[in-house]
Design a protein around this nucleic acid. Sequence first.
DNA 1: GCCGTTTTCGGCCCGACTGTTTTCAGTCG
Length: 572
Amino acid sequence: MTNNEIAHIFRTIADILEINDENFFRIRAYRRAAQNIENITEDIREMVKEQRLHIPGVGVDLAQKITELAQTGKLEYFEALKKKIPAGLLEIMSIPGIGPKTTKLLHEQLGIDSIAALEKAAHEHKITAVFGLKEKTEENILKGIALLRHKHEHTLLSTAMAVAERITRELSRVPELSRMSVAGSVRRQKETVQDIDVLVTSTQAQKIMDAFIRLSPVSEILAQGPTKAAVRTIEGIQVDLRVVEPESFGAALVYFTGSKEHNIAIRELAKKNGLKINEYGVFSEQDERRVAGATEEDVYAALRLPYIPPELRENRGEIEAAMRGELPKLIERPQVRADLHVHSEWSDGNSSIEAMAAAARGRGFEYMAITDHSQSLGVAHGLSPARVSEQIAHIKTLNKKLKNFRILCGTEVDIKADGTLDFSDKVLEQFDVVLAAVHSGFKQSRDQMTMRLITAMRNPYVAIIVHPSGRLIDERPAYDFDFEAVADTAARTGTALEINCYPKRLDLDDVHVRRAREKGVMVSLGTDSHSPEQFQCMDLGVAVARRGWLEPGNVLNCLKLEEFLKRIKQKH
DNA sequence: GCCGTTTTCGGCCCGACTGTTTTCAGTCG
């Protein structure tokens, strides 16, 4: 029973309790615990074994339930609960617009216990037989079901950012608009997002709303009120707009940026201090007087907190850190001096080394590592040792011509199934920097895969393990390995772990990056560019680094060239 | 079901929009 499986069971319990109309706070307790369990990289079974199940939101009762799940793989309470309601009710509740109350009503009055039955009833206009439901609800049920069927669960951050850019560019032409910011999970730079949130200030909200629903990417209007609207774009992405008065911009930006969990936490904190926070400002509870609201800094200051960067606002300890004055000084894009993972036409890239160097330089980098694939990776035209020698000679001549920029000779060497590398040490010693990666045998056991990675890290030439988990977002899960053991070895051997910046990888993810930092592991940023325009993906990698609480000192790429080379030599 | 810089009991974030009915519950974020 993995952490995510346990979290999923807790969420399911919450859903069932909700249909059964149980105490709202009890339901929330299960959801809160589930979220905190997902934020742990350590295997919860180990924590149970060693009796140190200290997780926020997990008290005596939930700790007992986790222990039962970890030890037996089952939970009596959950099994009994499942018998109380048909499984189909949970999927009905997942239809947008249909919540626990409606689900229960449909089940009790019409015996509906599946999406199929619900769809049939709606087509036959039987929904209106239920008191309180009319034609509009019937329509919304059918729309919701259709949406559920072909909605892509997640939108990649890179895709969402492109759509957000188009929306805000068009909206910025409305003369009545004074300020605008993207908010929500896009602003927090989550790797995937469900919708795009846009905040606008204006004293003429109606004008903004009118313009918003007429923007060219809009295909459907989902909701429209005087200050709030929601549309769906032709790409199928939901965009929410909120308009507030200028004096409320900061409070609204905090509120609309979230996360929901962060908002709840700061509102609780406000309450303890006799204050109330909503999207219009921070108010004194006694006399309703506004004490802050115009800027985010003011809002946090009213709570006696320093400004908390959006990427940290997940209620994963950032508020406590802020209170102690221990927020990290997060890495920023201009501090990144290099791209340490770049391909060229010598293996599976589409451009010459010269073209890639020019593009990297144009992006403000001081150096980059060309890291083409090794010999056995046939699909990617991996380089033989002879070709490696040729490439190194070629790069040497190129470097002579370059001013204020340096190309490093690197390789992305394949880690074979037994943990040995695709090049001998004799070949590896010629490179400035060696990246190692798993490209095959993803189905190996947890122990095998862990040993494979650890063996690779013990090689003195391996500087960085790239895309360490092997996942592709919404396409392929990470291979099974013991991250704690791998991170410990990385720290001990002085091997860096990569944040691969390719939009579908973003591997390591934010949670693991943060854990790596805690263990003193250096992190490397690599765009894995196969063409010049892909260097822009560095922004995504920086976003993950920031979400993982990284400071410039945690990141290899922030080292000056000489320092970087010195560090690599240290491991040799 | 959790939790404690007033509390081990009694709180637990806050508001907008929709659909329905006519003052509000349900849903969402």
